[in-house]
Structures are given as structure tokens and as C-alpha cells.
Write a protein that binds this DNA or RNA. Structure first.
Lengths: 190, 190
DNA sequence: TAAAGTAACATACGCGCTGTATGCGTATTG
DNA sequence: CAATACGCATACAGCGCGTATGTTACTTTA
């Protein structure tokens, strides 16, 4: 089964990339861990970057699901939007997401906005903001611009938290600052 | 002169890293371009990462100067703070800064907040926010947290702009959104 | 000032990793 | 049943990093 082979390689790549980083991860070790050789890898993914792309697509899809869940648990649309951001920050605490999605991914594949999958979670945020603009909750700004800034703020917060000595304490401060900052988008003064 | 040798290597590295990216830049080519060999490089910088660190320190210092200038040209402290952010966005449009400082740097050396130089421009932003809190302009949030979020927002805006088809137009939208977002920190409703 | 030591760089070597070309078994199709 | 395509393993070539080993020139010290 070809799908099973791909799945095994992606799984091994996720752990290897997360543990050692993309550059230091050897494809020989990778494939051996999955019970295969580099032949299977180049046949299915073209090259090392192709494998990274596949890993990123998978993680991105998982992140999207979790953001939707966080959004759905809120009472108002605005709170749902904030929840998405907080969820993003919390997800980025995981070493796997941080290393692959935030550090190696952009360095190897270039700016995430150019990725084929177009980072689904960014699209979700853009749509959420657009709806908030339409119903009058948020000032009439450019939705995509706002989404990217919010996204970048959350991303940097995550990197900061993960590198901190006391991640939980820093997380609290970051989330508070995030809510304050996001309030700048509100039509009614925060 | 040892300082001259270091300067030549750093200069060659800046152009090579900016053009090809850190991973694809060959040290043999690098040093040859500077009229030297890898021997000089390993003697002065230890390894390839050491050279990247030196390049980053130099660029970081240059960015700090330009942010101070932008800050100084504003009438109020709050406008000076905004100017810093806008200056950061505009600087990040330069391919050299983008590739080295925003993409390869974090991937190779880890989160910027852990760097020896501690990214001087981040410290500057933190101090600016703290002053604005002290004089009552900004809500009493954690200054470092706010600085990191602002920084991340500006960073992502820059990546977005640089990848856009019409960078100037997108820059306008990003700066506008940035001002709106930053207004969330203001004590008086924007 | 002559010998000894050291700093600054060049040269040479080994090793690991990527990418490609080739080989082998199996399934599919006419 | 022959032929072809697919999936993967094996073999090969080349490049780039890091280190160990020279080589030269400048200090230091007696």
C-alpha cells in the first residue's frame, strides 16, 4: 500500500525533524526508522524538501481543526476570534510545531503565505475578521492585513514562551497582552 | 590586520547568505570571494554558525540605529513608538534582512530572544513601551510581552509585503492595520 | 639581536549527506 | 502469457563541513 508507506515516512519525519531539526535530520536514519530506505522517500516525495512539505501540510491540517474547536467553544464571535489566537499560541508551545512550522519551515520553503496549502489557519483567521467587520464589531480595516499581524503576534508570543524558564507564567502575560492588542481592532473602545 | 579580515569575511557572508540562503551558501565560495580560504574563517569565527552570528550582530546594530532615528523624528512619545514599528516593517522589506534575520537566523540559531546580542531592537521597543506605561499613555500591561507581540506583528507584516506582487500597496495596508492594532494598547480609546 | 613561542592563515584529509541512476520483484493489462 | 508500469532497494558520484596539520610572520625574552 502506497498510502501506508507515505504515512510511515511522514510520521518518522515529524519526529526526526522535531527532535534534530530539518538540516541535521539524516534521510538514511529517517527512512530506516520507518523500516524503509531512501529509495521509497525519493519515489514518493521527490526530495527532502518535498517530505518537509508533506509533514507541514499534515500539521497544518491538525492545527486548523484545533482552531475551529476553540472558536466553537466561545459565546460571541469576537470571543471566538480571540480563542483562535490563544489556541494558536498554545499549540505553538509544542516543540514539534515550533521547530517545524515556525523555524525550519519558513527557512526552507520560504514565507508561509506562499505555501501551496496557504496555511489554512491564516485563511480561517482572515475570514473570522471579515465577518466581524461585516457585523460591525471590528473597525473597517483590511481583513487579511489584520489577520497576518495577529498571526505574527501570536507566533512570536509562542516562541517567547517556549524559550522561557517558566512557560506557564509567561503564557499568562502573553495572552493578556494579546487580548489588549487585539482590542485595538474593536470599533467600540475596548 | 585581523579586523580587516573579519570585516571582509562578514561582508562576503552577508551577500552570500542574502543571495543563496544560509544552507546553500558554500564556505569555499564565500571565502574565495573575500580573497581568503576557509582557514581564515574557522580561525576567526569557529564554524559556519559563528559567522552567521557575527553577520546578525552587525545587521542588528544597523537596525537599531535606524529605529532610533525613526523614533526621534516623531513629535510625541506614542508616535515615536509607532514610527519604530513602521521602520522595522520597512527595513524588513530588504531581502538581506529578511533572509538572514527573519528566516535563516531563527532556524539556525534558535529563537532570537536567546541570542547573545538579545536583538537590540527588541530591547528598544520594550523600553519605549515601559516609558509609555509610566507616563499613562498605555495601559499597564507587561512591557516585554507587548513588545514581543508588536515585534511579531511587524515581522509577519514584512514577510507578507515582501512576497506580495505589489509591495508598496500592501505596505500601506499593513501599516494602517499596524496602527489600529497598536491602538489597543492605548489607555484612552483610540 | 638571536632564539623561542605564538598568532594568523593556508593546505590536506576524512566523513557524512544528498540526489540520481540502475536493478529487482510484483501487479496490471491486453 | 507476454509486456509494461509501478514501488522500492541498491549502488554510485559529488559536494560541503569540520579538523588536523603545515607555513609564515610577528612578538617576546634573555
Amino acid at each position: 500500500m502506497v498510502e501506508e508507506t507515505r504515512a510511515k515516512l511522514i510520521r518518522a519525519a515529524r519526529t526526526a525533524f522535531a527532535a534534530k531539526g530539518y538540516a541535521a535530520a539524516s534521510m538514511d536514519d529517517l527512512t530506516a526508522e520507518a523500516g524503509l530506505t531512501r529509495g521509497a522517500l525519493y519515489h514518493n516525495f521527490g526530495d527532502k524538501k518535498g517530505l518537509l512539505q508533506a509533514v507541514i501540510d499534515q500539521i497544518d491540517a491538525e492545527m486548523l481543526v484545533r482552531m475551529r474547536v476553540a472558536h466553537g467553544q466561545a459565546a460571541t464571535a469576537w470571543e471566538g476570534f480571540l480563542n483562535e489566537g490563544v489556541a494558536y499560541i498554545e499549540m505553538s508551545l509544542e516543540p514539534e510545531i515550533q521547530r517545524i512550522m515556525l523555524l525550519d519551515g519558513p527557512a526552507v520553503l520560504g514565507d508561509p503565505s506562499q505555501w501551496p496549502n496557504q496555511t489554512a489557519c491564516l485563511r480561517t483567521t482572515t475570514q473570522a475578521i471579515q465577518r466581524l467587520i461585516d457585523d460591525g464589531t471590528v473597525k473597517p480595516v483590511d481583513a487579511e492585513a489584520a489577520a497576518r499581524l495577529i498571526n505574527g503576534a501570536a507566533l512570536n508570543a509562542a516562541l517567547w514562551i517556549a524559550a522561557a524558564d517558566d512557560p506557564r507564567a509567561v503564557l499568562t502575560k502573553a495572552v493578556e497582552a494579546f487580548r489588549q492588542l487585539a482590542a485595538g481592532l474593536l470599533r467600540t473602545a475596548g
